[in-house]
Design a protein around this nucleic acid. Structure first.
Lengths: 197, 197
DNA sequence: CTGATTTCTTGATTTCAATCAATTTTTAGG
DNA sequence: CCTAAAAATTGATTGAAATCAAGAAATCAG
């Protein structure tokens, strides 16, 4: 894992997209917006127009939307993942999400125009984009099903199994909103160490 | 609105994709699987591999997944919409959804291979596909937000405003599961005719 | 048209997680 | 290292919708 963000992006692209080395280098160069975030900083805020898709080279962020009374996490992003406020980016509408660094982060961004030009230029990039959207779609659907078919306790155990690393890096109060339960409930569920099926 | 399913598909494609008339005709011809469904028939069932994306030329269907105790509707499809068990179609895994006709339906299907060939052949089809996926993504996200930020009553009024036609065509018990409430609750919410904000 | 089945409504009761209210523990920044 | 702020825990209580239980109304197939 290279420390250099661009090098890391290049590896990511070559692993994920059917691009030649040269194409990958050219495409990677279009991810020209570098952001350094410290804990608490925002990559995107409610109401702002999302102009980029971000590659996270380092760090961890939460993606959330606010309600009257709390902030509900829809997901987390970390090293070697791609994140954006997709509905805002796709439709060019004000974002309904905020994306906040929970750790010091390094992100590389590509603009909307650059991305769509790349999609039109390289079929492999078009494929990468559809693949990413497909992943988002299947992820959202699976998540919706899980939330509505499982108990808070099951969801906790499922997440613990699928993504134990989150519990090392994310305050439980954010994990709680991601599981659609209150921190108090999560605390109680953890105490009674009932094992998952 | 033409009665002929193929003609209807052609109109749909020309409206939605930047295809020339000739391209549209050639692409439309790949939607070669025609299905006639009567009330109660299935376009896709749990556990089956979804092999097609379907264009609905006529009729109305519900898309749902089963839980221990009920069937939860994730959406409806009707004339001039496209439907599939997307996660199954995309990943070629057994479907976690069933898609059932609530009325007599006519559907035209394109196979996975035919679709992906078309995507690779015509940039406009690739665009159509990404556009469709983008629509699914934004729809799912908005829905997730709505479900977790609104009361059953608000959701009922929102749906009544956005899609009044569903109430003409779909039994309330299916609408209830779509709103993530029990039929009894929906009934009570409808009785107390409190108007939406 | 008509009887059977499905769907919808209404009432009584229960339940699971939310809320409210303090502490205790942990963490981060000076 | 120390202290203030943030996060987590624990207990008591509440509440909104689910569940349970009949009936009434609508619909569909023969």
């Amino acid at each position: 894992m290279p420390a250099d963000p661009s090098e890391r992006l290049l590896e990511f692209l070559q692993k994920r997209a059917a691009l030649s080395r040269e194409e990958a280098v050219v495409f990677a160069a279009r991810w020209s917006v570098q952001r350094q975030l410290k804990r608490g900083d925002y990559l995107c805020s409610i109401g702002k127009m999302e102009q980029h898709v971000w590659f996270i080279a380092e760090g961890l962020l939460r993606i959330y939307y606010p309600t009257d009374t709390e902030e509900v996490c829809v997901g987390f992003s970390y090293e070697d993942t791609v994140v954006s406020s997709f509905p805002s980016f796709i439709r060019q509408q004000p974002s309904t999400f905020s994306i906040q660094a929970l750790e010091k982060c390094t992100a590389l961004g590509i603009t909307r125009t650059d991305l769509y030009v790349a999609i039109d230029t390289w079929p492999a990039v078009a494929k990468l984009w559809s693949g990413l959207l497909e992943q988002v779609v299947t992820g959202l659907i699976e998540r919706e099903i899980e939330i509505s078919t499982t108990t808070p306790e099951q969801r906790y155990h499922n997440l613990l199994r699928r993504a134990p690393y989150l519990f090392q890096r994310v305050p439980l109060k954010y994990i709680a909103t991601y599981l659609r339960i209150k921190p108090e409930t999560l605390s109680r569920v953890r105490r009674t160490g009932i094992s998952a099926s």
